[in-house]
Write a protein that binds this DNA or RNA. Sequence first.
DNA 1: TAGATTGTTAATCGATTAACAATC
DNA 2: TAGATTGTTAATCGATTAACAATC
Lengths: 219, 219
Amino acid sequence: MIAIAKKLINPRTVGRLSIYRRVLNQLTEKNTQRIFSRDLAELAGVSASQVRQDLMNVSSNGTPQNGYSVASLSRAVTRCLGTTGPTPTVLLGAGHLGQALLHYFLATRPHLQVKAVLEVNNDLVGKHLHQVPVYHESTLEGNVRASHIKVAILAVPDDVAQDQANRLVAAGVCSILNFTTVRLRVPAEVYVENNDIQMSLERVAYYAHEDSELIEGKA
Amino acid sequence: MIAIAKKLINPRTVGRLSIYRRVLNQLTEKNTQRIFSRDLAELAGVSASQVRQDLMNVSSNGTPQNGYSVASLSRAVTRCLGTTGPTPTVLLGAGHLGQALLHYFLATRPHLQVKAVLEVNNDLVGKHLHQVPVYHESTLEGNVRASHIKVAILAVPDDVAQDQANRLVAAGVCSILNFTTVRLRVPAEVYVENNDIQMSLERVAYYAHEDSELIEGKA
DNA sequence: TAGATTGTTAATCGATTAACAATC
DNA sequence: TAGATTGTTAATCGATTAACAATC
């Protein structure tokens, strides 16, 4: 018996695979049957070489001259990303940003399911936001453990970010989308993705100044 | 007379410089006078070598044994980033995300000033959101030109993103923070920073699956 | 002075792009 | 078949890290 070592894909490639899948789904809606790497690249905003390089992580099935079947490539990407069922998720913070983020789970189904919103504001606790129950922040450990939550979205004030991250990790969370400006200290096996909007704003301000001959941005 | 060619700094470095400045400002509030690259690195979540490499873009004034003066390094970074006065900015879309983003301009002053919010929803047009007037989307060109707006924040539905980007660029905008999932086609001299929240959500979902021994995320 | 830190250059590392044999 | 495209390997590019002379 041979152990299947599922090689972990790096964050940039995962991001692009996610974009490819979105593009492929849009093509499906338009009844496009097949696509070449060149055209998928065009739609995703990357190079054709990059697409083929990325697809080496997927058990892809392109054929010379015919390109890829949209349907089966989409399936292959999904299989690769491993998000077959929805991943149970907790949202911390039901402020303006937190509530805006909840919308993303209605509009698009990003293979995540928000099981609980945690808040300190007692006006919200006990209510529902978009069908998701809001609990008090103090129930963090219980909720995470009960729903086997592995993903957390941090949309709380900076000053509580590290403390909540510690508690999330202790309760079993292993992947955090961090909208605070705090550089979280977590064990190496926990994935943290920082989305520092303040920093992004300062960056766009910078490139507005000079009549910058510029390169494309991040991610 | 010698022309001063202000070398344009790459996006990653600009992002870190912005983070350093934030950290330095926090140190100022704590009355910390001086700091070493090692400690600044620790607080910013990067390596000491990276800090010193980044500070080569700044006319920095560190001294061996004494490190950097917090106050003057902060000033030097600000000078380097060139954001002395607030940059006039337009926000497109006053939906949940747009309104959440407006909050960032109250809580923190990211060297940007939102001059106008543009919306299609007539219930909002004519009102103010956080002291910022809301105009109809059709006034885009006039508003951008009148206020000499160089920065735009796109928080609109995907299907109007490219059209609005075209109009923004035509009206003189040269830096766009794009919260849609559309890969905008813009002239090379326009800076676009994509903040694809959908993609980020799929990425954290991916790393929640395997008991990933992982690396730190993007940006 | 001795020791530690800066500024800067060199080495390494990783990611993107180019090239090309296999192939439909 | 001829031509174009895939899958994959090699080359390039850029960014991070390491090293180290200058220096306070």
